[in-house]
């Protein structure tokens, strides 16, 4: 039940999950859209026999307090993740390219969150 910010994927998740035991349901990653207009966010994972029951389980596990208007589930094994070892080559080159950030513009308040 990690929040999207806690980064449950940052170090370990790129490692293979290993073969599930025969008696174990597959793992599903759950994405929930909090309100119209916002995008789906990862909220956590759960086990379920199939997609339909994964959505039902997600409804019961992650939307008990009225958190969502839409649920996506994806089998965890279907997610391709970048590898932590490649952190340097992948992300560091953009560190010194401040001009890629649109921070030199004044954004009118009326625009709201971007």
């Amino acid at each position: 039940m990690s929040s999207p910010e806690s980064g449950s994927y940052d170090a370990t998740e790129a490692a293979p999950h290993g073969k599930p035991r025969a008696t174990e349901w597959p793992l599903w990653e759950v994405f929930i859209r909090g309100q119209h207009g916002l995008s789906h966010r990862h909220v956590g994972s759960l086990h379920a026999a199939d997609a339909e029951s994964a959505i039902k389980n997600a409804r019961d596990v992650y939307t008990r307090r009225n958190e969502g208007v839409s649920i996506w589930v994806v089998e965890a094994s279907a997610i391709a993740a970048s590898s932590p070892e490649e952190k340097g080559p992948l992300y560091e080159p953009s560190n010194d390219k401040v001009y890629r950030h649109p921070t030199f513009f004044d954004i009118p308040d009326e625009v709201g969150a971007m």
């Binding site: 349901w25 759960l46 086990h47 379920a48 039902k56 389980n57 019961d60 596990v61 008990r64």
Partner: peptide, 10 residues
């Protein structure tokens, strides 16, 4: 399982 536990409690 945990998922059923929560569903039943709901």
């Amino acid at each position: 399982v945990l998922e059923e536990d929560i569903a039943l409690a709901n």
